[in-house]
């Protein structure tokens, strides 16, 4: 079975060619790519179509007609996978060059070896300690979410906000139906942990952003922290989904 790499892209016309070049060096056969152009006002869509036409591996491009946010863009990838029905793992990978394509094969291998439903690429497990680890304030937020998720689900993770993650069929078929529309990573991870899906992490190295804008701007940080905390706490109050446990 094939694996699908989903690249949500909003205003990434500059970073996309570099990201594709890096993917070209590291991706073996058996992977397909899907660029979800999230209603970008710039040439992201055209650049993606051009790259898709010549890329070594089968590459699809989906254009959301209006800008809808990262969660919606990623969920479009899960829906696409559900509709095509030929994929085993669906991997979320940032189009902006932050993520290391060399981590993709180990992510899938970790899922297969440990029978995981969700495997996260964590920038805090890297034994060499190199790579970009975000600002102090953001690291504080990440530790807070990791603590909250551990407290409420008993599952320990180090990088709950990482956007580099590989989902197995049990996780992504559910994500295709329900997925948080903004800041989706900690909440969807918590949902998996709470419902008894197997969650794991492998170390990855991340780079600083290559272009585009971070989806988390300073003014929105307070909203981000409160919204995600509320989502996680309220999700804890929902009933466990019996067919998964």
């Amino acid at each position: 079975m094939l694996n699908l790499l989903v690249l949500p892209a909003f205003k990434e016309e500059e970073a996309l060619p570099k990201t594709f070049a890096a993917l070209d060096r590291h991706l073996p056969e058996g992977f397909e790519l899907l660029v979800v152009n999230d209603g970008s006002p710039d040439r992201t869509g055209e650049v993606a179509e051009e790259l898709a036409a010549t890329f070594r591996l089968p590459t699809h491009v989906v254009h959301l007609p209006v800008n809808s946010g990262i969660g919606v863009a990623v969920q479009t990838g899960y829906r696409f996978a559900a509709e095509r029905g030929c994929y085993r793992y669906v991997i979320q990978f940032d189009a902006d060059g932050q993520h290391d394509p060399a981590a993709l094969v180990p992510l899938v291998e970790a899922c297969e070896r440990h029978n995981l439903d969700l495997c996260i690429g964590s920038r805090f497990l890297d034994p060499t300690g190199t790579g970009f680890r975000s600002t102090f304030a953001r690291r504080l937020g990440i530790r807070f979410f990791a603590g909250l998720i551990g407290l409420l689900s008993g599952v320990r993770v180090t990088d709950p906000t990482s956007g580099l993650r590989c989902a197995g069929p049990r996780a992504w078929s559910r994500f295709a139906e329900f997925y948080p529309e903004d800041y989706p990573e900690p909440e969807s991870l918590f949902w998996c942990a709470r419902n008894g899906l197997r969650v794991g992490e492998i170390p990855v190295t991340m780079a600083a952003r290559q272009g585009g804008e971070s989806s988390i701007r300073r003014l929105r940080t307070a909203y981000y922290v409160m919204k995600v905390t509320l989502s996680i706490v309220l999700d804890r109050l929902r009933r466990q989904e019996a067919q998964l446990a």
């Binding site: 989906v62 254009h63 007609p65 809808s68 479009t76 829906r79």
Partner: peptide, 10 residues
């Protein structure tokens, strides 16, 4: 609907 439209268009 937005997602369905985008996927159908593809």
């Amino acid at each position: 609907l937005t997602q369905e439209v985008a996927i159908l268009k593809q």
